[in-house]
Every structure is written in structure tokens, then in C-alpha cells.
Simulated scan of single mutants.
Amino acid sequence: MTRIVRFADAEGTVRTGVEDASGAVRALKDTPRVADLLRLSADELRDALASTTGDARSDVLLLPPLDGLTEVWAAGVTYERSREGRVAESTEQSVYERVYDAERPELFFKSPAWRVLTDGEPIAVREDSELNVPEPELGLVLNSRAQTVGYVVANDVSSRSVEGENPLYLPQAKIYAGSTAVSSGIVPAWEVPDPSALEIALTVRRSGRVAYEATTSTAAFHRTPRDLVDHLFRCQEFPDGAVLFTGTGVVPGLGFTLREEDTVEIRIAHVGTLSNPVHPTSTARSLLTAALTAPLSRASYRAV
């Protein structure tokens, strides 16, 4: 499996490259950003990925595969199970019942590129929320022309008690330091055989034991990804592309909440895995601030 990756070398220089099935990375010619690649058409991107330079390397630090003005957005209530979960937690149940069958989907901003975490880095639970859950999702990587050019494994970490108290609190439940994580590489769309039937598996480990696990499939979508993309691009531009989380079909019962020191692992067939420890938001804030000027600092947080 080939992946588009961002990486930092031993000197901290950030490059974009192509990772092969063995994990070896080759830099792309002309030092493009991922954002630059997402300005290309799907055909142009495929040609660009064939143009690498230098020796293959394995001694690099993989970074979140997003940069520039690329934005992360997310969709909600796109599976039957997610509707049931939102209705159960909410004091305004009819809101979720109505959006499930409405023509217009629920879409919300999730994160700018600089605030995205990747594999091994600490996701977070809000200190002012009693009920917090991971949300395993297929992430669509979209170019500036609204074409799906790749896929990532995504975790839309959410504070259910905050959102459940009042739907108007959705931004606080969804947007905070440590709430957005994606796998460390983008799998090109042409390498995923059937995105409409991908198994998605979630495992939460606590003190060496499985605290929660579940599976779903993109075959259970109530809305098509294409419909979500069309609504996202309907009245705005994404010059550096976007990543769209497509919603979750795995919603734990109200008796489960994430705890600090849990480990969350998400696996999506043909796309990859994403594993993150759970820490306070202060850890994620420190990581994200340090990484703005010192990308290699991310390595020390992955060892925590």
C-alpha cells in the first residue's frame, strides 16, 4: 500500500513524500506541500506521486499528513446507529431525528491543519465533560475541485455530555485541543478497491485489557459520501482541499467513557490504522504549540 506522507528528517526539515509498503519514504520532487498536491486534479496528483527523488529512507518522523490552508470538516448522523446514540444522549432528541431524514446533512468544522494529531500522539478528553468517546470514521481527502483523491483513518473525539446538554454546544463538544486525529499517511483513492464496503473496527484498551470494542462498515451509510461532499462544497471554496470525516457507526452506550491512559485503536480495511493514548487537553495543547516551530518535538510526546 502506497501512502502520501509528510515527514521531518533528522535536521527538522519537513518534506512531503511517498511511503511504500515496506515503510520506506521517498521525497517528492520540487518539495511540494500536501496542500499543493490537493490543488491538483486526481490525474495530475497520480502523475506527481510518480516523481520522487533521492534514496528511500526509514529514519524519518512521520507527521500529520495535512498542512497549509487545508481544513478538516465532519459529518454527523450518517449511520442508523449514530442517530440512535445521539437521540439517547440528547435533551433535544427531535433535532437528531429530523436531520437523519432531512435532505441537508449535518456538517461542522472540526480543525485547521496545524491542530491535527496523528498516530501515537495523545488525543484528549475535556476536563469539563463527564462523557467522552472516540468516533472511528473514514476520512475523505478532497482536492480543491471536490474530487476524492485519498482516504485516512479518522478519530472525531467527542464530548457527548457537552453536546447532549444542548445541541448549540456542538462546537465545544467537537473542537478542542486533542479532539482530531488522522492516520499518518493518505492512501490514494485508486488504491482502495471499494470504499462503499470497508470494515471499521474500534478497540479501546485500559490497563492492558479491552474496555470496549465494536465494528461497523461503510456499507451501513445512510448518506452517500458524494452527497456529503456536494453539500460541503456548495457555497464555499477550499483552495488547499479538505478532509471530510464521514460520521461514525460506532457509538458506545452511555455507560462508557474514555479515561486518561486509555489507548484507542481504529482499523479501516485497505486504509490503515490509527492508535492514540488518551491524555488531558493540556498535553495536546503543549504538543501542538511546540510542533509549530519544532516538528521533531512531536517525537517526545509519542513516548509519553
Results as ranks from 00 to 15, higher is better:
Gly12Pro: 04
Ala8Cys: 00
Val77Cys: 02
Ser158Tyr: 07
Ala75Cys: 12
Ser129Val: 14
Ser217Pro: 06
Cys235Ser: 15
Arg83Gln: 15
Ala220Cys: 11
Phe238Asp: 01
Asp43Phe: 10
Ala294Gln: 13
Leu45Ala: 05
Ser41Asp: 07
Leu61Glu: 01
Val133Met: 11
Thr248Gly: 04
Arg115Tyr: 03
Thr203His: 02
Leu40Thr: 05
Glu130Asp: 15
Tyr212Phe: 10
Asp230Gly: 08
Asn143His: 07
Ser90Ala: 14
Glu71Ala: 13
Arg205Leu: 00
Leu140Arg: 08
Thr218Glu: 14
Ser183His: 05
Ser282Cys: 03
Asp43Gly: 09
Thr78Arg: 00
Leu38Ser: 02
Pro280Ala: 10
Asp30Ser: 15
Asp59Asn: 12
Thr216Tyr: 12
Pro171Cys: 07
Gly178Trp: 00
Thr148Met: 05
Gln93His: 11
Tyr176Pro: 01
Thr215Gln: 15
Ala10Lys: 04
Ile266Arg: 02
Gly208Arg: 05
Ser196Arg: 13
Val125Pro: 02
Ala242Leu: 09
Glu44Gly: 14
Pro65Asp: 06
Arg298Leu: 13
Pro252His: 00
Ala303Glu: 15
Arg81Cys: 06
Leu38Trp: 09
His270Val: 10
Thr215Leu: 08
Tyr169Met: 07
Glu127Pro: 10
Arg104Gln: 10
Ala154Ile: 08
Ser51Gln: 10
Val304Ala: 14
Pro64Asn: 00
Thr246Gly: 14
Pro112Val: 15
Ala35Thr: 12
Gly54Ser: 15
Thr246Pro: 08
Ala102Glu: 11
Pro167Phe: 07
Val18Glu: 06
Arg81Phe: 06
Pro195Lys: 10
Ala197Met: 04
Ala102His: 08
Asp59Ser: 03
Leu258Asn: 09
Val153Ile: 10
Glu137Ser: 10
Gly241Tyr: 01
Ser144Gly: 06
Leu107Met: 06
Ala24Thr: 10
Val187Asp: 05
Gly164Cys: 07
Val14Leu: 04
Val243Asp: 01
Gly12Ile: 13
Val243Thr: 07
Val187Cys: 11
Ala173Lys: 06
Arg160Val: 09
Leu202Pro: 01
Phe256Gln: 06
Ala284Asn: 03
Ser129Leu: 01
Val95Ala: 14
Ser286Tyr: 01
Leu232Asp: 04
Pro112Leu: 09
Leu62Arg: 07
Pro239Met: 08
Leu49Pro: 06
Ala290Trp: 09
Asp227Gly: 12
Arg298His: 03
Gln172Asp: 02
Thr53Met: 06
Pro122Ser: 08
Asn155Leu: 06
Arg285Leu: 08
Ser275Gly: 10
Leu40Asp: 03
Glu191Ser: 11
Arg86Thr: 12
Val153Pro: 02
Gly247Pro: 09
Pro167Tyr: 04
Ala24Asp: 08
Ala10Tyr: 09
Thr180Ala: 15
Arg145Pro: 08
Val192Thr: 09
Trp190Ala: 10
Leu254Glu: 04
Asn276Met: 13
Lys110Asp: 02
Val229Tyr: 12
Val116Gln: 12
Ser217Leu: 06
Thr293Val: 14
Arg234Lys: 15
Arg206Trp: 02
Lys29Pro: 05
Leu45Asp: 11
Ser184Met: 06
Val95Leu: 09
Arg6Ser: 12
Val5Tyr: 03
Arg115Lys: 15
Leu170Val: 12
Thr16Trp: 00
Val153Trp: 00
Val141Trp: 01
Val278Gln: 03
Pro195Trp: 11
Trp114Thr: 13
Val95Ser: 05
Arg57Ser: 06
Val141Asp: 10
Pro32His: 04
Thr118Gly: 13
Val99Leu: 05
Ala220Trp: 08
Asp240Lys: 02
Lys174Ala: 03
